[in-house]
């Protein structure tokens, strides 16, 4: 039973049957379809924007910034986006914590409501906010009475950005919190650590990548946001006109070159951010 084989001529390479070749072709075909789909649908439009925006090289950015109103619009967008990101990084983490760790009546409703901004059209969100806080609503008038004006100010823009990006940080942090082994916190508390201390030293380091990842997604979403902002911002040039709305106006005024250079600048910022996010999330998945 030594298992010696009868001598048969050995071909060094196995025959490729029709079936095998067919499988290889199918694989190549699917890959080709994927490449063509993403190439035509994603890369070509981006190439169109970037070549137009970079038409005169780096000087085209200077021309873009020289367009009256361009710089204030970009500054306003970056500023409101940064503040909205900070607010939602904190509140999103708090919401995730409350949803995962606490049991209270209405928790499932709260969890469902957090997802609403993904379902409600952004323009409708803007309309909602305008209806509630606008000059024609009792709440808006009451707030104005105490000197706080929401509609047609940067506070309104901030509010809109916070609403539409609400789920992003929550949905990044929540799964990580769920997977977190409570034994670590228990160990910390048996060692005499208080709740706040063990949150800072045990929980926070674990969820930090998720908060950062969600925060970057939030920021990228904010600097491109149009639908929810366009109604409540009032679009006053130099005051409450954001970059996306400004690009929209330029495009409508048949000034595509200027629009494209501002769009390329904004795209470059969020492109870098999205890449960073992807890296961070990938690292988290590996850990």
């Amino acid at each position: 039973m030594s298992g010696a084989a009868q001598t048969v001529g050995i071909r060094s390479v196995p025959v490729r049957s029709k079936d095998r070749t067919g499988a290889a072709l199918r694989h190549l075909g699917l890959r080709g379809a994927a490449l063509i789909y993403l190439g035509a649908m994603v890369l070509v439009p981006i190439a169109a924007i970037v070549t137009k925006g970079f038409g005169d090289g780096l000087t085209s950015f200077r021309t873009a910034l020289a367009v009256p109103g361009a710089w204030p619009a970009i500054r306003l967008t970056l500023l409101t986006s940064a503040v909205a990101t900070l607010i939602n990084a904190v509140m999103g983490t708090l919401l995730a914590w409350v949803l995962v760790r606490y049991r209270f009546p209405g928790r499932r409703v709260l969890s469902a409501v957090v997802d609403l901004p993904m379902a409600i059209p952004t323009l409708v969100t803007g309309l909602m906010l305008l209806t509630l806080y606008g000059p024609n609503s009792p709440i808006g008038q009451a707030l104005e009475g105490v000197g706080l004006r929401v509609a047609f100010t940067s506070i309104g823009i901030l509010l809109a950005l916070c609403v539409v990006t609400l789920p992003l940080v929550v949905r990044q942090v929540q799964p990580v919190l769920l997977e977190l082994d409570p034994a670590e916190e228990e160990a910390a508390s048996t060692l005499g650590a208080g709740a706040w201390f063990s949150f800072r030293k045990v929980v926070f380091p674990a969820i930090r990548p998720a908060i950062v990842g969600g925060g970057l997604l939030t920021f990228a979403r904010c600097i491109g946001e149009f639908g929810s902002v366009v109604l409540i911002s009032g679009n006053l040039a130099g005051k409450t006109l954001t970059a996306p709305v400004f690009i929209f106006q330029l495009a409508n005024q048949f000034r595509p070159a200027e629009a494209a250079s501002i769009a390329t600048l904004m795209f470059a910022i969020s492109f870098v951010l999205v890449l960073v996010t992807a890296r961070l999330l990938a690292r988290r998945a590996e850990a």
Partner: peptide, 21 residues
């Protein structure tokens, strides 16, 4: 897929056949 070599089941050579066959 083997880089080289052959596989039989009885007198039936499998080397180039698909999994299903």
């Amino acid at each position: 897929q083997p880089t080289a070599g052959r596989i039989w089941m009885g007198d039936d050579e499998l080397t180039a056949k698909s999994v299903q066959e």
